[in-house]
Design a protein around this nucleic acid. Structure first.
Lengths: 355, 355
DNA sequence: TATTAGCGCTTTGGCAGGAGGACTGCCAAT
DNA sequence: ATTGGCAGTCCTCCTGCCAAAGCGCTAATA
């Protein structure tokens, strides 16, 4: 559906309506619109325009004789063609930057801190999804004996990510067996993508002779060893920011929402399963921001929410940072926040990255 | 305050009142009490008894002409002297047992699974606090190079726990330096408690010569390396179980509660900062269960909740598993659940433990 | 042709008032 | 000690009513 037939004035009214609705959270009527933005136009004229907008499905009224509220389509038009990214103040940028880079060394700590600042500065729920190791290239693999029947497998990925898993072995293994295995594995597997390894490991190791029991462990437990996500798949901060919004006034919604938040998978899907192409709102070269509005979300649990997300990178491995809030959100501002945060995060992770 | 002056009948009435209130969630009046439990006694008599109980501060009425509700003191008396632990059915026990032992190998996975089954079977919020490494004895320490400027430190604790930290070093280190350092550290530190190491490391390593820069890293970053909690300090599952309770009907409470849950520290305090002595409700030798009721909690954020918790062990390292719910909870059942779960967990962790 | 003013209609939210219910507390009788 | 009964209290729910906000439509106007 294209909206080329919309006059400039209609677009302007839609834009004002959204602006006003975003901050007031109540349906906005022709009167306020006329008084506040169109001193030289009467409310009656605005009413006509509103009627047109309604026919196009861009706004709706909760009930006869209530003001208008933007529809998801309305927001979409706004985001695509009307929105002007609201630049962050220098102090805000500084706050994000220092917060992201000030965090600890582990990727987990960095993401945690990032999520926190994101949620705080945007007053929304912040979500970051840890990078998928799948695309990471195995640099080296190291086996450390923990106890007689347990070994720790350290998987080192190019660009400095590391992951450790504890494996349980049924019977004792000698130290030299372990060292041999380690070098075999490194020889056969390093330089490959983790995802590749997962798919092809049994073929690659079939020719190897040696402690079959031990080898089998690596092949069988593929999922455990090779299918690792980062430490914790997602960080979620600031659910209470959302819950205090009037959108979640009624108990039912609220409970369902909490259930979704607890079951992180749905959230991760919502952040990752983006449909549209990323748009760059800011400086060229900046990470593209994707906005998914309400019912556009493939995940039904967040049908009442919008997701603003962008990609960040650690080497070739990718993750996403996102803000989730009610569809009634300050897109112009959140888009900038997410973009800048993703950028800072990528920078930070590049700085600590050297393979 | 002692309640020895209470007649048996008064105790019985209190007990019935609590039972009824726990399932109905509404103030219970003399009529229902008489009809349901005392076919040979009139409501008027019950009224007299209730008056007595109220004078003792064991029950209260929200307003004149409402039924009675147990006070925290009332619950306390109930838990201490009236409660009979409700034995779990064999299928329930089986469910807990298999769930706990079926979980993966890493302690994090085990605790996660345990928390889940706990919350699910009790319909409350489950919380498990990861063991404090502080009391663990360092078995071995291993250094793995990740990239030129990063090393992974694997800390292996007696009884099979392991923990890894990534350290960042300013300049390149040679491989042999690393091996030397590793053996020095192992020689000087293994066999000591982690807490001990944290406190005395600088003294212990002062005499060592060698790569000073590198050594300093271990001494300076004491907090990072030696102060490790387990992977994630606490697991929390089932917040929505609580939120659907009528206790959290009003928005204010609910929001505050969510805030507390998000900020895990408060929850951990609530679970750990127990005042009373543990009581064993079940089989002798079973872990002692601690019940902390409402305002007894040192943490004001959970003043409206009760915490039922018990200790579990991994070798000499200890953690807690807990259920948190409104003071109106089925103590008799929850006590059994927590006790059995803690027991199963300790068993599971002993089984996978061999140093 | 675009805009405006005005009128009638609809819906919501809040407030007042009354009926009904669920208790308690007390008292006198057993 | 226990009981039935009664007066009094407090909450909850329902109803009716009214004002406010807004819209759509139409007729008048520039």
């Amino acid at each position: 559906m294209s909206f080329e037939n919309l006059s400039d004035r209609e677009r302007a009214v839609l834009s004002h309506l959204i602006d006003h609705y975003v901050s007031s959270a109540t349906p906005v009527g022709s009167r306020v619109l006329a008084n506040q933005y169109y001193k030289d136009l009467s409310s009656a004229s605005i009413r006509n325009i509103l009627q047109d907008l309604e026919e196009q499905g861009l706004v709706a009224q909760p009930h006869t004789s209530a003001g208008r509220v933007p529809t998801d389509t309305g927001y979409r038009l706004y985001v695509d063609t009307l929105l002007k990214a609201e630049p962050l103040t220098e102090s805000e940028r500084e706050r994000i930057r220092s917060s992201v880079s000030g965090a600890g060394k582990s990727i987990d700590a960095i993401l945690g801190q990032t999520t926190r600042i994101l949620a705080e500065i945007a007053h929304q729920m912040g979500v970051t999804v840890a990078p998928k190791f799948d695309q990471g290239i195995l640099k080296r693999l190291q086996l450390v004996r923990i106890s007689s029947e347990r070994i720790l497998v350290a998987i080192v990925v190019k660009s400095g990510l590391a992951q450790s898993v504890i494996l349980e072995v049924e019977a004792r293994i000698k130290d030299d067996e372990l060292t041999t295995l380690e070098s075999i594995l490194n020889e056969k597997l390093s330089g490959l993508k983790l995802g590749e390894i997962r798919r092809t490991i049994s073929a690659r190791l079939s020719s190897v002779k040696g402690n079959a029991r031990l080898l089998k462990l690596f092949i069988d437990t593929e999922s455990v060893v090779w299918n690792q996500e980062s430490d914790s798949q997602a960080h979620v901060v600031g659910a209470e920011n959302l819950m205090s919004q009037p959108e979640f006034a009624d108990r039912e919604n609220l409970l369902e929402f909490v259930r979704t938040v607890e079951e992180r998978n749905k959230l991760i899907d919502a952040v990752n399963g983006v449909g549209g192409a990323p748009t760059s709102f800011g400086a060229p070269g900046a990470p593209g921001v994707v906005v998914t509005i309400g019912s556009e979300n493939p995940t039904p649990e967040v049908k009442r929410c919008s997701v603003v997300s962008a990609e960040y990178k650690v080497g070739r491995v990718k993750g996403r940072v996102a803000l989730i809030g009610p569809t009634r959100m300050r897109y112009s501002r959140l888009v900038s926040i997410v973009e800048y945060t993703a950028q800072s995060l990528t920078d930070k992770l590049r700085m600590t990255d050297n393979d």
